[in-house]
Design a binder for these strands. Structure first.
Lengths: 150, 150
DNA sequence: TAAAATGGGACCAATTCAGTCCTGTATTGG
DNA sequence: CCAATACAGGACTGAATTGGTCCCATTTTA
């Protein structure tokens, strides 16, 4: 598997739509549900999450709605996914220490730190601007150079 | 979340152990369970998976066990994770077309293809040799250059 | 021939995930 | 002023996935 959750996927679609439509006023959850075909309760849930994590601003009351908290170019996939799923931590041992009982001579952690960073980097290069316009954001290059031994 | 599954994590530990101990004979599941502190049934399950996907070779019968199918330097994290979790496909739309009903003007797919490739690349650079010796395998570099628009 | 090993399933429990529902608060147009 | 519209914040449920166990068959060899 190893999937981005559906919710994250939805969140990306929703934010793209907001970035696309955002005029002076905010965009309402109801409107987004209609234009993206995502069920309203799910849309509401996600928008709240994104607001709590500072990705969106909300306007309450009758003519309310949501607006991007930052410029589209500053809202990237890493931020969005972290808002919905929490911090990107590919392995258990990344987040807390937890004292991984399985294997004490575990020297894999240093590698995970790198992989984690590379992955987050790949995500953070793509922003809402890239998604609303049709631009390809990034060319990945990778040098296989070896860093000095630990 | 966005975690590598525990099983993948275990698999990496098991393979590291096999790479470390592998002499002429194969290493038994029982022995691996003891040396890694992973429950035997789980070890058995994983070794079978890894064998089915060509990562390990098995020797049946009394003095049987498992051996690496390839050199440690040829067994990398991408291969291991794919053996345990299936193909690396960060989003639903990567694997099959499935005609993603949510959003028809979806131009995110091209981005996911890139992110997916970058992630797999990051995983494939780390191999069993790196894990058994304490070498840092990779220095990640990333150029933010923009490729031409789609 | 019995013991030790893999082979191949089925199976269960627990967690996580996706999605819904309900009630409250803020704002504003009429 | 009040009703309609929108967000706020939970609780809750059903489904799917995951982690883990168990059982029995087959292979090999001391």
């Amino acid at each position: 598997m190893l999937r981005i959750s559906k919710l994250s996927d939805y969140a990306i679609v929703l934010l793209s739509e907001i970035a696309r439509e955002q005029g002076g006023q905010g965009v309402t959850a109801r409107h987004l549900a209609a234009s993206t075909h995502i069920a309203l309760p799910t849309v509401v849930k996600l928008l709240k999450l994104l607001k709590d994590h500072g990705v969106l601003l909300s306007i309450q009351g009758r003519n309310g709605g949501y607006r991007l908290a930052h410029r589209p170019s500053d809202t990237n996939l890493a931020v969005i996914i972290e808002a919905v799923e929490g911090p990107i931590a590919l392995t258990e041992c990344m987040n807390e220490e937890l004292d991984c009982q399985i294997h004490h001579n575990c020297n894999t952690k240093a590698h995970w730190v790198h992989i984690n960073a590379a992955f987050r980097q790949a995500l953070s290069v793509v922003n809402l601007n890239d998604l609303t316009r049709g631009t390809m954001p990034v060319r990945v290059s990778w040098n296989g150079d070896r860093a000095p031994a630990l």
